[in-house]
Design a protein around this nucleic acid. Sequence first.
DNA 1: ATGAGTGCAAAGGCTTTGCATTAGG
DNA 2: CCTAATGCAAAGCCTTTGCACTCAT
Lengths: 143, 143
Amino acid sequence: MSDLHGLAAARLRADGQRYTANRRAVLETLAAAERPPSIPQLLAARPDLAASSLYRNLAVLERAGIVHRIVTNDEFARFELAEDLTGHHHHRICTTCGAVDDFTLSTRLEAELERALGRVASRSGFKANGHRLDLVGTCARCS
Amino acid sequence: MSDLHGLAAARLRADGQRYTANRRAVLETLAAAERPPSIPQLLAARPDLAASSLYRNLAVLERAGIVHRIVTNDEFARFELAEDLTGHHHHRICTTCGAVDDFTLSTRLEAELERALGRVASRSGFKANGHRLDLVGTCARCS
DNA sequence: ATGAGTGCAAAGGCTTTGCATTAGG
DNA sequence: CCTAATGCAAAGCCTTTGCACTCAT
């Protein structure tokens, strides 16, 4: 995690962007979070940060491949560090409270899935970038 | 598809709702669509339909289990008929143009996935409602 | 008849943009 | 230095709500 900063700086530089204090703050908040926070949660965690800057920075960090936007059925998006910084995983999404947390599948099943999806993609001229597998339901606290 | 209307009427009635001309129109547009339309697309297809009614009706139809809201990384939600009317399937999502279309997996892989996800859910006290598996990338037209 | 559904317009709320100022490299 | 980044305020835009009218049953 100590070279999260180095990595982020490098990727931003590659994209012609600077690694500023605000961006560092966003990444640290994400790295420290138990669960992917929404924008309101990020704003609450960093009251000093202007909303417009947060929106702009999340967009920049997403384009640079450092953070990833999770879209749930919840009203706002949530953000996490990119998969290559945290490892491939999936999300358990609670439709009642909107909470998101992570789980993984066996590498065997994951590989099989990857093969099947590769076939689906090539069959249709689709260029796959990755997949998204979420478990949707009600978390322990909400049921 | 002819008893889409009968089914919809029944489910709405069960929810204390009426099956009106607007709701019929929305379902017919969804049934006729090649790909899940967004709200702007639905409005364009039905210029006579007030935006507020469309929003209200989509919410009603979703609660009654007749339509399903698909959330992509795209800016607006897309809608399709519920899975029990069309069969279980997954989505190929183009991150460039936002288009969504369907694919299916072998029943074998699907069953295996279901088992694995069942284990993941029970292990954490999560009550699974279903899963969502999407292939994310660039469609043939956009690449 | 009678309450749900509809349409229009206005309000709401998250997100984006303009612009002058600050700070990164 | 010189440009990107920031913050504030204003504008945008999708979505929701209020209210009087209409239609389904």
